[in-house]
Simulated scan of single mutants.
Amino acid sequence: MLDNTARQLDMMQPEPTPAAPKVAPTPQQAPQAAPKHVPFSPLERLATVALGLIMVGFCLFYLTGQMTLANMDRSYQQVQRNITTSKQDIADAKQNIGELSNSNRLTSYAKAHGFTVIEGNIKRAVNK
Rank of each mutant, 00 (worst) to 15 (best):
R74D: 13
V23I: 12
L2P: 15
K22W: 08
K123G: 13
G120C: 12
Q95D: 11
D3A: 12
L100D: 14
A50G: 00
P31N: 09
N121C: 04
P39G: 12
M12C: 03
M11H: 07
P42W: 09
G65P: 02
Q8I: 13
P39F: 10
K128P: 02
T84Y: 11
E119Y: 14
Q77P: 02
A19F: 09
A93E: 08
G114S: 12
L106W: 00
A110L: 03
I54K: 05
I90Y: 03
I118W: 00
A6K: 01
N104H: 06
M1E: 15
K36F: 08
P21F: 04
L51M: 15
Q8G: 08
Y62H: 04
T5H: 07
G52A: 13
F58G: 10
N127T: 09
Q78S: 10
S108D: 05
V38S: 12
P21E: 02
H37C: 00
V49R: 01
K128M: 12
M72W: 11
N71F: 08
V79P: 02
K111R: 11
M11F: 12
L60T: 05
A30V: 07
E99G: 05
T85I: 09
K123D: 13
P39K: 11
T107K: 03
M67K: 08
A70S: 14
N102D: 05
N127L: 09
A93R: 11
P14R: 11
H113P: 00
F40T: 00
N71M: 15
K36Q: 13
M11K: 05
I83Q: 15
C59W: 08
R81Q: 06
P27G: 03
F61A: 12
T17F: 02
L46H: 05
L51K: 15
K123T: 14
E99D: 10
R74M: 01
P25S: 05
L53P: 00
L46G: 07
N96L: 14
Q29T: 00
T64K: 12
A112I: 02
M72R: 14
G114C: 06
A30F: 01
P35K: 10
A47K: 05
M11E: 13
S41G: 14
I90L: 14
T84K: 13
N96V: 03
R81G: 01
M72D: 11
M1V: 15
T85H: 11
C59A: 14
Q77D: 07
S75P: 01
V49S: 03
T116H: 00
V117H: 06
Q13R: 12
G120F: 06
K36E: 08
T68G: 10
S86I: 10
A112Y: 03
K123L: 15
A91Q: 09
R124D: 13
Q29P: 00
G57M: 07
P39D: 14
